[in-house]
């Protein structure tokens, strides 16, 4: 860890009526860094350490293993379905909620947030209750030889469920803040509904949309509990990356487990980097707007 220095020049000292003495500041910063190091940084670093502990060959072998490749492909496929679906949903929900006044709006917002408060395990279970062999449509699906539970459609559904709120809850406050004047102006000037949406609304929300999509993608690729319940853990077929990590780990194949896990950790880091970048851009943008 680098040594921490504090700017304590004369002019900064002057405004210290609302500032704590230096030793308290150093103490608090120190405590924070120790806590975060123990609970955040070391776990993160250990993922990469464990992944490469047995050398790059073992690492490469683990992530190029056919089952691992199948898991990676499945995870990417699921995200490629779940994220666009929730994008369309998020835009539709935000358009209705932010641009119009109607009754029951707050209830609708609460319903959209609902999946966040449901345990992942329960999120998976409810789909088993609907589509599983014992479920509402179980026998009908079996007759028509359609597999949803313990198959890819079930994984997609469970993933969509847990990621429903991500994009909508980014867009709703953003579009509420932007108001309806610009859209009204476009309509007065003769634009059609789609022209108004594509030329006025969409450019104004694109960064919020991207932000929500990145968070949604991270969760979609990383979801474990819900997917675990509906997947059936069939290697090479219904195994997503997080499930593959679990299987390898339970087989005491730690190096391989951490190798696949390191890819997911990398995804998390990329997600955080993009997220920070967009936040930084928004800040700059806001400052420019206030000039």
């Amino acid at each position: 860890m680098t040594t921490i220095t504090f700017p304590l020049s004369a002019d900064t000292q002057k405004q210290r009526t609302t500032q704590e003495p230096a030793w308290i500041r150093i103490l608090l910063i120190g405590l924070t860094l120790i806590f975060l190091t123990l609970f955040l940084f070391i776990p993160l670093i250990s993922v990469f350490y464990e992944a490469f502990k047995k050398g790059a060959d073992v690492y490469l072998a683990a992530i190029t293993d056919p089952d691992a490749v199948a898991a990676i492909k499945l995870t990417l496929t699921i995200a490629a379905i779940a994220v666009p679906l929730n994008m369309v949903f998020g835009i539709a929900a935000a358009w209705a909620i932010a641009k119009f006044e109607f009754r029951g709006k707050n209830l609708l917002i609460t319903l959209i947030d609902l999946p966040f408060s449901v345990s992942p395990v329960v999120s998976g279970l409810i789909y088993v209750l609907v589509f599983g062999l014992q479920g509402w449509f179980g026998s009908w699906l079996a007759e028509h030889d359609i597999k949803i539970i313990f198959a890819v459609p079930g994984i997609v559904l469970a993933t969509v469920f847990v990621t429903v709120p991500f994009i909508a809850r980014e867009l709703i406050p953003l579009m509420q803040e932007q108001g309806t004047e610009e859209e009204e102006a476009a309509v007065v000037l003769g634009a059609s509904g789609w022209q108004t949406f594509y030329q006025v609304t969409l450019p104004n929300i694109k960064w919020g949309l991207l932000y929500g999509a990145i968070l949604c993608n991270a969760r979609a690729m990383g979801e474990f509990g819900a997917v675990s319940v509906v997947s059936g853990h069939i290697r090479g077929s219904t195994n997503t990356m997080p499930l593959h990590v679990e299987i390898l780990y339970n087989e005491y194949n730690f190096a391989a487990a951490f190798a696949v896990a390191s890819l997911l950790a990398l995804l998390a880091l990329v997600t955080l980097a993009l997220k920070t970048l967009i936040e930084f851009r928004n800040q700059q943008h806001q400052q420019r707007g206030h000039e």
Binding site: E182, V188, G190, P203, G289
Partner: peptide
């Protein structure tokens, strides 16, 4: 219609703002 807070399209240049009604 001139809106109270102008409602200029923030993602378009001034030129494109004025041209909007003709372009659509």
């Amino acid at each position: 219609f001139v809106f109270q807070h102008y409602a200029l399209f923030r993602n378009m240049t001034i030129f494109e703002n004025v041209a909007f009604g003709l372009r659509v």
